[in-house]
Write a protein that binds this DNA or RNA. Structure first.
Length: 229
DNA sequence: GCGACAG
DNA sequence: ATCTTGTCGC
């Protein structure tokens, strides 16, 4: 699929933050009217030795069950360090390399990270949503910013994630007796719809299936390509 | 200055 | 994120 080059990636810490502050005004946190027939999950795996990392995207139909219709991967080198709040400057380039190979454009995409639950409202999911111009959802395994109350131990229960007097996401229980996941709208969706989509793509695991499958895919890719070097 | 801090 | 086997619990 094609996408917009909104800015350069070879930037420093200060410029990266400037870019985030500019892009946040372009976000649309409303449910888009388009139909949601397909959903995608994306993830990145790292090689501890080298600076190589591996990205993957998998597209599924969104019905009673998920049916995989396409997958794409990419391998590259990390060119930006991991800095909390600047994750997209590290992972977006390699993720885009994988998205670029996709023939089927998913109607909504799940990312392993935050959406607007971010210091400048521009987590990985929001940043990717703007570039791809698609509805996106952030689904993180831990919190970056915001406060929340304990979540009832029942599937589907959630409490709001508040940051600077604003609801930026939710701590959502996708599985009993496991820690909640942190959901936040990325782009072209609101929190309520984001939660609905995540619950609809979650089965017997804590992590929604599209992301879980993408995670398995990139880990397999890393281990296989590691044997050849 | 101290503590927090997606992957 | 990554390094890693068994093991406790639903």
């Amino acid at each position: 699929m094609k996408f917009n080059k909104l800015h350069a990636w070879n930037v420093d810490y200060k410029k990266a933050i400037q870019i985030q502050q500019t892009l946040r005004d372009l976000l649309i946190i409303k449910k888009s009217s388009g139909k949601i027939d397909t959903i995608a999950g994306a993830d990145v795996s790292y090689d501890k030795q080298s600076d190589y990392f591996f990205a993957g995207v998998i597209v599924f139909t969104l019905n009673k069950y998920l049916e995989q219709i396409e997958e794409a991967t990419a391998i590259g080198k990390a060119r930006f360090p991991y800095i909390p709040g600047l994750l997209s400057f590290r992972e977006a380039p390699i993720l885009l390399k994988a998205f670029r190979k996709l023939k089927n454009e998913p109607d909504i995409i799940l990312f392993d990270g935050q959406g607007i639950a971010h210091p400048r409202h521009l987590g990985l999911a929001s940043h990717m949503g703007l570039i791809l111009d698609k509805p996106t959802i952030g689904c993180a395994k831990s919190r970056l910013v915001g406060e929340y109350s304990p979540v009832e131990n029942a599937v589907g229960s959630y409490t709001k994630l508040l940051y600077k007097n604003e609801v930026v996401g939710a701590a959502l229980r996708t599985k009993i007796n496991t820690k909640p996941v942190f959901i936040s709208p990325g782009h072209k969706t609101n929190l309520a719809f984001a939660i609905r989509i995540v619950m609809a793509s979650c089965y017997r695991y804590r992590i929604p299936e599209p992301i879980r499958q993408a995670h398995l895919l990139v880990n397999k890719l890393r281990k296989e390509s590691h044997l050849q070097k």
